[in-house]
Amino acid sequence: MTAILSQSPTWTFPFCPEPPDWFLDWDSIQNHFDWIKNLKGCQQDPIYHAEGDVLIHTKMVCEALISSTNWRQLPEKERSILFAAALLHDVAKPAFTKIEADGRISSKGHARQGARMVRQILSQFEPPVQFDIRETVVAIVQFGSLPIWLIDKPNPQQSVIKVSQVVRCDFLALLAEADVRGRQCSDRQELLDKIELFREFCQENNCLDSPRQFPSAHSRFIYFRKDNANPDAEMFDDTKCEVVLMSGLPGSGKDYWIRENLPNLPVISLDALRMEMNISPEKNQSEVVERAKQRAKEYLRSGTSFVWNATNTTKQMRQQLIDLFAAYKARIRIVYIEVPIAEIQDRNRSRTAPVPEAVIQKLADRLDIPDRTEAHQVEWIVADPATLGAMPRS
């Protein structure tokens, strides 16, 4: 379930080429975006990128993409999404590129961090980029290399089915193909063959242009928690209670949402426990978390549904808790709440016990938005900027 409170009727990325001439206004792109300028002079391994620096490569990728018949046949919004992903796919390379001891050039980790940078960049657009569009671009950047590396994955089937829950696999194939055609390398045809194999494999697994469907939400949840599960198997639902796992930056409105939507459920709040135990958010939180887990186990043993209220801004944070809840046969529902970072900082200053701004910024920089592979149910509550002034602060 997705709750998007603000949606634009149409959206196009600035300078995205349009018919009939499909002109790429590269000069305007370079003059308009600072992050494009940062790509100039960033070296690449000449074995894989003999064309030159990252800026040259990015332009070639965009040219390859907009020359693609498959891209030109897409609706306008989808063309814009892929064009944005092509421009941004290597945005983190300048920060992650280094020369190894053997003289080779690498940029390990740039895709994951690049996805987070893309989220920040698109969040600063005016007007703000619609949530589902923004997160589609983020996902394409993060998983754009999967078509090339699929056969090296321990479980290729689960890899494509999992990513299909987040982004269309045919979008990944389109970007990967443009990425390969937008470089000079000796193994180009081999890479293109891998991408075509990826398309065929996704088609065989019913997840090329839509998410792979499961017999039930519980079957989907169990499938992604096992290494060699059958995606067609309907799993017996033996859950005994529901845990609502809140996720969102401090000041996003989690407390208010709980009061309005789940007033009768008990709440385990890390903020409340910190105050109860007189522990600052800047101090070690292990005692607070341990106390919260003990209370959670009491509810879980008795089969009592409850809310776990904390930031839970990274997948790693959430996974540890989900493992605990699932071990007690709980049904997991994640509720993610988002408001613009400027509003969050403003709300935080009005709190009786404000969170240090550096802590909020650190959480924002490392944010992993929940996806459907993590829980039985995921909801994304995204505030309409036009109504923020009327929303209660919490």
Rank of each mutant, 00 (worst) to 15 (best):
P147D: 07
W35F: 15
A92S: 08
E135S: 09
A50D: 11
S80W: 01
S145A: 15
E76N: 14
H57I: 02
A86G: 13
G41F: 04
I133K: 06
A84G: 08
L88G: 12
Q158E: 10
R104F: 06
V160F: 04
V61F: 07
I56V: 15
A95I: 01
S106G: 05
C42F: 00
I105W: 03
V160C: 02
P156H: 03
Q130M: 15
S67C: 08
D132W: 07
Y48G: 11
D102T: 06
V54Q: 10
S28G: 03
L87F: 05
V138D: 12
G114E: 09
A101D: 14
I99W: 00
K93Y: 10
V118K: 04
I81N: 07
I29G: 08
H57A: 07
L146F: 07
F125G: 04
F33M: 03
R116W: 01
S28K: 14
T136M: 09
V61W: 05
T136N: 10
E126T: 12
N31L: 06
D27C: 03
V141T: 14
P127R: 15
P156W: 00
G103V: 03
L122P: 05
M117F: 13
E126W: 00
L82I: 06
C42N: 04
W149H: 14
Q120M: 09
A85L: 02
R116V: 01
A84D: 06
S123T: 08
Q113E: 15
A50G: 13
D102Y: 05
N155E: 12
D102W: 02
I105K: 04
R134D: 08
V54L: 09
A115Y: 11
D90V: 05
I47V: 14
I47M: 06
L146E: 15
D53Q: 01
D34A: 14
C62L: 03
Q120A: 09
Q43H: 07
T69N: 05
L55C: 11
T136V: 05
G103C: 03
I105R: 04
K37P: 08
E126N: 14
H110P: 11
C42V: 15
I133C: 07
M60T: 01
H49N: 11
R79T: 08
T58M: 03
E126L: 08
G144S: 07
F125N: 04
E100K: 12
R116T: 02
H110L: 08
E126S: 13
Q142T: 01
L65K: 04
D53K: 02
I121R: 05
P75M: 09
D102P: 09
A85G: 13
A86H: 04
K37I: 00
